[in-house]
Design a protein around this nucleic acid. Sequence first.
DNA 1: GTGAAAGCGCTAACAA
DNA 2: TTGTTAGCGCTTTCAC
Lengths: 345, 345
Amino acid sequence: MTGRNRRSGMREVAQAAGVSVSTVANVLSRPAIVAPETRQRVEAAIAGVGYVPHGPARQLRGVPSPMVGSITLDLANPFYAEVNRGIEDRLAPEGCLLLAGSTDLREDKETRLLRLLQAQAVRGVIISPFGTDLSRLLALSRQGTPVVLVDHPGDGLGLCAVGADDVLGGRLAGEHLLALGHRRIAYLGDSVNPAPVAGRREGLRQALAGFGLDPSAALLDLRLQLRPPSLTEAAAAAAEQILSASPPVTAVVCLNDTAALGLLDGLEDQGVRVPQDLSVVGYDDLSFARRLTPPLTTVRQSPYRLGETAADLLLDEARDRHEHRQVRLEPELVVRASTAPPYAP
Amino acid sequence: MTGRNRRSGMREVAQAAGVSVSTVANVLSRPAIVAPETRQRVEAAIAGVGYVPHGPARQLRGVPSPMVGSITLDLANPFYAEVNRGIEDRLAPEGCLLLAGSTDLREDKETRLLRLLQAQAVRGVIISPFGTDLSRLLALSRQGTPVVLVDHPGDGLGLCAVGADDVLGGRLAGEHLLALGHRRIAYLGDSVNPAPVAGRREGLRQALAGFGLDPSAALLDLRLQLRPPSLTEAAAAAAEQILSASPPVTAVVCLNDTAALGLLDGLEDQGVRVPQDLSVVGYDDLSFARRLTPPLTTVRQSPYRLGETAADLLLDEARDRHEHRQVRLEPELVVRASTAPPYAP
DNA sequence: GTGAAAGCGCTAACAA
DNA sequence: TTGTTAGCGCTTTCAC
């Protein structure tokens, strides 16, 4: 009984209203120009045939696309999910739509997404890059597609960027542990080094150095394969490696809360008590961090605000006289029960 | 030195290679047809000018859009974030891109997203609807845009759908509590009733009735404003209401783990011990559930598989001779430490 | 106030 | 094997 009716265009509307297509177009874009009576007839026809303007055709005529690409490391990661939400909320009032993709820290995936977004001629791209070679992004930007880096310092590049001060965050974590009496600390990081992961490591080193320790001796610098989708499992598996370190470490700083969650599981399996036997610090302060067993000491940042800010920067690119800016958000140490003075036998 | 160079099209490529546009088109879509030498020249020209095909123009000529819309209640909710990831992973090999949006259980937002997706003439729409009136979705589907419901039973509608068996899930939770000795149970639900929320409630009622209790007496049916983005806060605020119930309840089933997380916070603030004073059951088994304080008894389902399946159904819609199907996934009770026999003074 | 006509970048049928 | 041509649905001059 149905028979999928083909989508109807302006022609059908014009025909139904007994006017020309350009009159329909006028009703849509400059209603004031059209005689009230004609306008009513056209509006009725639009409703009657269920007309919806065809985006791609408009785009071909020069109307900008409503779509904004958001490329993150993993859209299922609660951190980036929040980033995306911040972007979405800021973009929706502008009539924009979010095109979300995940790279899993893999160059081929990033390249593919970038190509697709470019092919779609999106209004702009917000990306949390993981490599050090951002030349493709610069090229995209120069070519006319606004590009904003998110969760990245963006220093020295000719691009807008929002990031948290990860060096400071790492330093806060390190100083907290040093104050508790820890002198040898592990950093659970990834083999690939997106800017935030590297920044936190650097902050830790600074804290150790500032305390008069030799970072290369005091820091056990783990670089594991901590990729989506099994970040927690990989972190759990790291427990063994951390426990067998020699000389032993008394505290671990994790690249993020999700990894910390996994590590806590792994430590429990090994019969290690946190914080009595080992202190653990997370990063991000995701909503569950405060209710973990034990409640997680972590460095708080607001992915939602990161996303909002990125969207703001992107919207600003549309203005003429736009100047690229780099925004830096301040992280904050949140001390809970997963850290304590080292065990003194 | 820069001066955003306009995007170059087939014409520039053709000119650079000294051929016509249709030869360029041929190189792109039927390379075998073109003389090897010509092809090489064209390919060089493509690389030279950095040509990327213009999606909207292709779409106008009938090439299907690579974009698939995904409308969920909240893309920042870890559950839907996983759903989206499942969709993305299944769609990427098909060259598709995910257009993600959140409705926050608000009809105006849903309507807006649907209109935008329709305007873009997307390849299909995957949606977790929250209302009971799905006529707009049916209309969209009949009009030729494949529509798949996710996290929804989809019974009787002429649409593809994937959902978990929420009634069973609610029943499992209820039977578990009954077996522990609980006789009066609260269900922490939302004032808006997406299918899963209602299904779980119904399952609970069935469990109570099957045990010979009167559901309307044994069930405290809370219907709160549990909307994004502050679901946890709202759930925390529900603690008071639950504790002051008369006759008192000894257990609470939450519509999902995120609400359970909030409720646990609220209960702690009130000095209530879980599970000694009150048992709490979550729903979903998100990654953090097993490490909460206390570890959460919950009903496990796999949002990732929900997403994958939805994507499969959507892809299948493209086939001729497609039959709409409703897929039902089985949830599973996971008993942890947040439930125990009721306190007997 | 309304309509005719050109053309956005591309594809595909057809001609050469 | 390659080129010419006619639109896809829309916006936008420019006549009427």
